[in-house]
Design a protein around this nucleic acid. Structure first.
Length: 875
RNA sequence: GCCGGGAUGGCGAAAUUGGCAGACGCAGCGGACUUAAAAUCCGCAGGUCCGAAAGGACUGUGGGGGUUCGAUUCCCCCUCCCGGCACCA
């Protein structure tokens, strides 16, 4: 019942103007209204397009900070906000530290969603994409991100993608782009080919996680990334500024493996049909050629080209092989090829071990994959887990050829537990190689194979050449022509760009939409002048993002992708920031592209990115934000409710930037409270003392004022250190919060004593406020600019010098030293900061509590860590 | 299986070189202001136990062991969670 009364009272009270008049009477308590402040500054920043422009000719040190460019889906999500808040804070910090900062933004704007939207809404992809860009750009500006928009890159516009085409021609010229009919990954949903990198480990499409990828044979364009495989691997060691995690992922992806190719001749000594040409061989890849005397079968992948010949005689065999293929495909779909039951079938044929002339059976097995090595192995059951399992099942001979080496010759193991897979061992039963150690045997035996023409040492990679053809519309046209007379002919450089036509009917069926436009397809051969057919596939969108950051350096160049001199100034990128989901695809392609450009002498850097930072995801209620879970937090809504500063500051404060951030609305409310506290403090004290912002002599300050000065300098140090070294923005912000808390306590203290109005304190107040605003500037630019104005500062806050701390002023005069007995805290003593060890230990021992605790015990040791603690060891 | 990263109050987290565990914030509780509410300001707060209180004792950083005067931090073993790679020959 009382509650009901209260409701009525509330309603009547809200109509009563008395309360609001009273609030207005007290400007001290003016409420912080982010909407008012932010819209004021938003307007000012809008009208100055040069505000965040990087300098073209500068004597300052350069700093290139880059956030991964977004796909223009139409709306920013919180992950973007977090990513860009980190980059923006860094850019602003570096400006304040006197650098010439390049901080650009652009749009990765080709891709399938635009085509899907076209089908669903009957909107042309270009219109849909450019409309989305406009929306997202407005969101970014509202969030106050300091981008140099004069360098904006939009990858779907001809002034950008013509250089994709130009690069393609260069690749072709250097023999690094080639056309090949090959089995490719085909997603029936996307109706296009996918790169290996776009197929998930469960064999499904990266965009349609439930749709298994099919294999189709198509003519495709490939870029020879494998030419750089070794360098891409080796140079990972140079990337000290990259997360170990990303380097490891790339290492795994490249998957370098040293071994040998060995040719096994087919055995023709028995009757046969369909056994291939006389003298045919099966080439196997092995990392353990030293175990070849233990090989007791050859195993082929079911898709191996020789399988057809080997099984030609028997319909039954062919059916079994089909079964093995089906098993393998199914296992890939399920995602655990390592777990399937091993099956195989004996072909009835034999191969000859070139080392000992022995005839060994040829099998086809479902655990051999065609896309690694040669798709054929020599099976050594005694020294390989998988071969062992298989041999046990099918009763194939298991022959021991390596023994473990023991330090103690008495303890030589002659019957190791099988399979014995360690590389540290000594060969037995291996003809002339018996007695050698594995590593040496590998060298000797590879060399022997090479000398005798049946093998060689080699290296294989998991990394495959990059298939870039896509049978889609919304991408860069591949600048190639097919002439009946001259074959494949590149479009001459002067004819670039090959413009992507508009007004195209888009469906997901029936191959490339470009193929249906005669004006596009029909062209003239530049060599013979006869009719030619234009390539109708477009490029993978990862081409667009492989080099876009070079374009920022010289975004309007219409004679080259960019000027080499300018690129030399800005590259490598000092700091790149983005999601870890791009650790392999985008970042390995970008590294590849950089190495190619270096070989074209366009640039001099070997690597595009000096330091990489992968920020954590933004999650809600412990799960990734998604429409289906209904846990999406909208940046627009957050900005409307709490302001851009609060949204940005919270995304930096709630967790260290490399960890996942669990979004909590109550958390951002706390940040809003904090910003209000800062605002009100400055509103109350802004007029405190403009007369002096000089460093004050410590001696003229009251003890409370001196304490504030000390706290200020400690805070400057902490924020600078955490920003510079560790990138822990959360602790930067909590340090600023502590300073503000101390300022509130100081105000309180001034009110109760007569310190208020004291001249020196007033000057200190001005100094403190000025520095507080500077510290806040990289994180909460709107409020910081407003307060900078209120403090009467005239110069630009954007490039105002970052505050320096004075170590002498930051130093404590007295220290509270914990005193432990046997490592347990027993008391605390206060001593002068410069007290000697003798003094501190003496005072510790004199302490009442310590006296009581050590009474009757013998002191064994006294440990003093200067400025930190005293530990007294007693027995 | 291999590789990388994690595990700290009710929650997000902090502790930078082996030295006071829990800064800062959220949620909570108490107080001030207010007719009332909101807003704001001040204060309390890891857990258990003793005490009216002041205060004190014990315990505590996923689990077990070790090194050390002293371990969230270093070493060994184990559990669980997240991410990557994987019949890779």
């Amino acid at each position: 019942m009382p509650q009901q009364d209260r409701v009525e009272e509330t309603t009547t009270a809200s109509a009563n103007p008395t309360g609001s008049r009273r609030a207005a009477d007290r400007p001290d308590d003016e409420r912080y209204d982010p909407k008012r402040v932010e819209s004021k500054w938003f307007e000012r920043w809008q009208s100055d397009s040069e505000l965040y422009a990087a300098e073209h000719h500068s004597t300052k040190r350069k700093y290139y900070v880059l956030e991964m460019l977004p796909y223009p889906s139409g709306v920013l999500h919180m992950g973007h906000v977090r990513n860009y808040s980190i980059g923006d804070a860094l850019a602003r910090y570096m400006w304040m530290n006197g650098y010439n900062v390049l901080h650009p933004m652009g749009w990765d704007s080709f891709g399938l969603p635009a085509e899907n939207a076209a089908i669903q809404n009957n909107t042309p992809p270009r219109q849909w994409t450019l409309g989305n860009i406009a929306k997202m750009k407005a969101q970014m500006k509202r969030l106050g991100f300091a981008y140099d928009w004069s360098r904006e890159v939009t990858t779907c516009l001809p002034d950008y993608y013509r250089w994709n085409q130009w690069f393609f021609l260069k690749f072709y010229e250097k023999g690094l782009a080639y056309r090949k009919k090959s089995k490719v990954n085909w997603c029936p949903q996307c109706a296009t080919v996918l790169a290996n990198e776009q197929v998930l480990t469960n064999g499904c499409c990266w965009r349609h996680e439930d749709t298994p990828v099919e294999q189709r044979a198509l003519e495709q364009w490939f870029l020879r990334i494998t030419k750089y495989a070794d360098e891409l691997l080796r140079d990972l060691d140079k990337l000290g500024g990259w997360p170990e995690k990303v380097r490891t992922m790339q290492r795994n992806w490249i998957g370098r493996s040293e071994g040998a190719l060995i040719d096994f001749k087919l055995d023709y000594s028995q009757p046969h049909t369909g056994f291939g040409p006389a003298g045919a061989t099966i080439s196997v890849f092995t990392t353990r050629v030293d175990t070849i005397y233990g090989a007791t079968s050859v195993q082929l992948a079911p898709q191996h080209p020789m399988v057809a010949d080997l099984t030609a005689a028997s319909a039954d065999l062919r059916a079994k092989v089909e079964q093995l293929i089906a098993e393998q495909r199914k296992a890939k779909e399920v995602g655990d090829i390592g777990e399937i039951e091993k099956h195989g079938v004996f072909t009835g044929r034999y191969a000859i071990n070139p080392f000992n002339g022995e005839k060994i059976p040829i099998w086809v097995a479902n655990y051999i994959v065609m896309d690694y090595g040669t798709g054929a192995i020599m099976s050594v059951p005694a020294h390989d887990d998988r071969d062992y399992e298989f041999a046990k099942k099918y009763k194939i001979e298991i022959r021991l050829v390596v023994l473990p080496i023991s330090d103690d010759p008495e303890e030589t193991v002659t019957e190791p537990r099988l399979p014995f897979v360690a590389h540290e061992g000594m060969l037995i039963n291996s003809g002339p190689y018996s007695g050698l150690e594995c590593a040496e045997a590998i060298k000797t035996m590879s060399a022997f194979a090479e000398q005798n023409g049946f093998g060689k040492a080699t290296v294989t990679y998991r990394l495959k050449d990059w298939g870039i053809s896509r049978q889609r519309y919304w991408g860069t046209p591949i600048p190639m022509l097919y002439c009946e007379k001259d074959g494949i002919v590149p479009v001459p450089e002067k004819d670039l760009p090959v413009i992507l036509p508009e007004n195209v009917e888009i469906t997901l069926a029936g191959g490339s939409p470009l193929g249906k436009i005669p004006e596009f397809v029909n062209a003239t051969c530049p060599k013979c002048g006869g009719p030619a057919r234009r390539e109708t596939d477009t490029m993978d969108t990862f081409v667009d993002s492989s080099w876009y950051f070079y374009r920022y350096a010289d975004a309007h160049n219409d004679r080259a992708p960019f000027d080499s001199k300018i690129a030399r100034y800005w590259f490598p990128i000092d700091q790149y920031i983005g999601g870890v989901e791009h650790a392999i695809l985008h970042l390995i392609y970008s590294r590849f592209w950089t190495k190619f450009m270096r070989d074209l002498s366009l640039i001099t850097n070997d690597e595009p990115v000096e330091r990489l930072f992968t920020q954590g995801m933004v999650i809600k209620d412990g799960a990734k934000m998604s429409k289906s879970l209904g846990n999406i937090v909208s940046p627009d809504e957050m900005v409307a409710r709490y302001g851009a500063d609060a949204a940005r500051l919270y995304s930096l404060f709630a967790a260290p930037p490399d960890r996942d951030l669990d979004w909590q609305d109550s958390g951002i409310e706390g940040i809003q409270r904090f910003l209000g506290r800062v605002f009100r403090f400055v509103m109350r004290n802004a007029s405190a003392g403009h007369e002096s912002v000089e460093m004050l002599p410590a001696t003229s300050l009251s003890p409370q004022a001196r304490q504030i000065q000390r706290k200020l300098h400690q805070t400057i140090k902490r924020v600078s250190d955490d920003f510079q070294g560790r990138w822990h923005f959360n602790t930067c912000i909590s340090a600023i919060m502590e300073l503000v808390n101390a300022l509130y306590a100081y105000e309180e203290a001034c009110r109760s004593t007569s310190d208020n109005g004291n001249h020196t304190s007033a000057a200190l107040m001005a100094e403190v406020q000025r520095n507080l605003v500077l510290l806040l500037a990289p994180f909460a630019p709107y409020l910081a600019h407003e307060l900078w104005d209120i403090l009467g500062e005239k110069g630009s806050l954007l490039k105002a010098p970052w505050p320096r701390y004075d170590a002498a002023l930051a130093k404590e005069e007295e220290l509270e030293i914990p005193v432990q007995i046997n490592g347990k805290l027993r008391s605390r003593i206060v001593v002068p900061a410069d007290a000697s060890e003798e003094f501190v230990v003496e005072r510790a021992l004199a302490d009442e509590k310590i006296q009581a605790a050590i009474a009757g015990k013998q002191i064994v040791n006294k440990i003093y860590v200067p400025g930190k603690l005293v530990n007294i060891v007693v027995r």
